[in-house]
C-alpha cells in the first residue's frame, strides 16, 4: 500500500478548508451568531457550578431513603443534572442535604460538617422535620434546621417524593446560576417586597455587625 506523501503546508491548508466549511459571507455570520454565546466570566462560572454539584453523602433519617439513595439510582438518576458524584468528605462537597430530623445532639455535628465544606456551598433542608421539626414537636428535635445554619432551599413533604427532591434540586441550580425563582412573590405579583429590596435591616447591617463580621472573616482567613 502506497502512502500519499504531502507537504506539511498542504496538509494545514486542507485542514483549514475542512474547518471553515462551505459557508461564506452573510450565511457564515448568521451561523456564528446562532452558535456562539457571549457572557460574563461570573455567569459562566455559575453555570459550571450549577451543573457539577457534588452532594455530601449524608443522611439523617427516613428522608435519606428518598434523597441521597433513591435520587441517584437509575430510575431517577441525578446524574442527568451533573450531581451524581456524592462525596463522603465535607471538604469535597458543595451541597449538604439535611434529610430528616435534626436532634439537638446531632445539631452541632451537622453545623461542623457545614462549616467544614468549602465555599461556595449550599444547603437543602429536605422534608418537614428538618424544615420545621415536623411531627416531632418535642424536647429532642431542633424545630427547624435554619435555627443553627443557613438553608438555601426547603423541600416540603413527609417524605418528599424523589421527583420533589429533583424539582428542588433544579430550583437550586437556577438559584446558583443567579436566576432564582421568586416563588410566591411571583405568583402574587409581589416581586420587590423582599426585605433587602425594601431597604430593611437585612440590606444594610449595623456598623458593629459589619465590623464584627470583618474581624471574624479575617481570623478565619488567617
Amino acid at each position: 500500500m502506497e502512502v500519499e506523501r504531502r507537504s506539511l503546508s498542504s496538509k494545514q491548508a486542507s485542514a483549514r478548508q475542512m474547518l471553515r466549511g462551505d459557508l461564506e459571507g452573510e450565511d457564515l455570520d448568521r451561523y456564528v451568531e446562532e452558535r456562539v454565546v457571549t457572557t460574563t466570566f461570573e455567569k459562566m462560572l455559575n453555570l459550571a457550578r450549577a451543573n457539577s454539584i457534588f452532594p455530601l453523602t449524608f443522611g439523617l433519617a427516613c428522608c435519606a431513603i428518598e434523597a441521597p439513595i433513591s435520587v441517584v439510582t437509575a430510575r431517577y438518576d441525578l446524574a442527568r443534572f451533573g450531581a451524581e458524584a456524592l462525596r463522603a468528605s465535607p471538604r469535597q462537597a458543595d451541597l449538604i442535604i439535611l434529610s430528616g430530623r435534626v436532634s439537638i445532639k446531632m445539631a452541632p455535628v451537622v453545623r461542623r460538617l457545614y462549616d467544614q465544606m468549602l465555599e461556595p456551598k449550599w444547603a437543602i433542608s429536605m422534608g418537614a422535620c428538618s424544615s420545621s421539626g415536623g411531627m416531632f414537636s418535642n424536647y429532642a428535635v431542633v424545630q427547624g434546621a435554619d435555627k443553627f445554619m443557613p438553608i438555601d432551599l426547603h423541600i416540603p413533604g413527609c417524605p418528599p417524593r424523589p421527583e420533589a427532591v429533583m424539582y428542588g434540586f433544579s430550583k437550586l441550580q437556577r438559584k446558583i446560576i443567579g436566576n432564582a425563582d421568586q416563588g410566591w412573590r411571583q405568583r402574587y405579583n409581589a416581586a420587590g417586597t423582599e426585605e433587602w429590596a425594601r431597604g430593611g435591616p437585612a440590606s444594610a447591617p449595623s456598623p458593629e455587625a459589619a465590623e464584627a463580621y470583618e474581624a471574624a472573616r479575617e481570623i478565619s482567613l488567617a
Binding site: 420545621s132 421539626g133 416531632f136 414537636s137 418535642n138 424536647y139 429532642a140 428535635v141 424545630q143
Partner: peptide, 13 residues
C-alpha cells in the same frame, strides 16, 4: 424528659 411532668417542648405553631 420522659417523666410525665416534663414539658413536651417544641414550639407553638
Amino acid at each position: 424528659p420522659q417523666r410525665r411532668d416534663f414539658p413536651v417542648g417544641g414550639e407553638p405553631v
